[in-house]
Amino acid sequence: MKSSYREALRAGIRDALIRDERVFLMGEDVGAYGGSFAVSLGLLEEFGPGRIRDTPLSESGFVGAGIGAALGGMRPIVEIMTVNFSLLALDQIVNNAATLLHMSGGQFHVPLVIRMTTGAGRQLGAQHSHSLEGWYAHIPGLRILAPATLEDARGMLWTALQDPDPVLIFEHGSLYNVPGELANDAGPVDIVTAAIRRPGDDISLITYGGTLPVVLDAADQLAAEGIDAEVLDLRTLRPLDDAAILASVARTHRAVVVDEGWRSGSLSAEVSARITEQAFFDLDAPVGRVCSAEVPIPYAKHLELAALPSAARVVAAAKTAVAAGG
């Protein structure tokens, strides 16, 4: 069936609401407004205000309430409009959701799912455009997901809800309108493994989320120049699927990590470090990285584009890696 990324997300939420009466959706403008990115459009009418709960502008309050409801036996899906606003709830996520299980000696677990939009590309300026999922991937106690395909948009949520611990799902804002085909019986998917989106022999292009289409585009361009790139979609940013990363690099002997987050102290740094720690002798070239420029994302279109990873930059980095070493 035809579906957009947005519709696939909505189908996943709907499915969860139908299958488990403990599941409810809560966040700013998820109900009457229809969702700030229209993901939850129509769900209020179908499930009512008890299960599609509009909240005031109180990110810390309603994320904390989600944690409490999860402790109390519910299975909340909390929507934060964007990762930028999740910073107002950072304390609840990091100091409560991620720590309660450990601090309580295993007595209390937090089966909570938090969904939020991330990323740039829509000329929204610095306070609406950042990619901070890498920060969250730093935190033990959290599982971090980045669905980049319709299947993952549709299927990650249910599996996340089965996880006894908090799961954060990052939806890149540039993906919502992406159209595609989704199998009629599309359902839950694993939230553990990375996936090869394009097999190749010459180099591993490792990415996730909003930059997956960019990297696939780059791989096509490279193919036209005789470079056969493998594209690995991390899918789960914490814990990382080391085995998939290392297996790919063991085959191709070269890697470029593409991440819309900034380069310094980043997820791309972590992936790169793991490769050099565990597959150093497989490498024929230094691990390359393509990240956002180290600047708050500017509004002006040409500056924003210049700040973000592009297919051209990925192609250039891949060629550098292929040209280097043996």
């Binding site: 502008l57 930028n84 606003f85 107002l88 929204l124 300026g125 610095a126 306070q127 609406h128 509004y299």
Partner: peptide, 24 residues
């Protein structure tokens, strides 16, 4: 051009912004 509609600033008039974070 770095700010856009939501982030207008002007030191000369002591206009300390535009802020796109509610209550920011």
């Amino acid at each position: 051009g770095r700010g856009g509609s939501m982030h207008l600033f002007d030191a000369a008039t002591r206009f300390f912004g535009g802020n796109a974070i509610v209550a920011g």
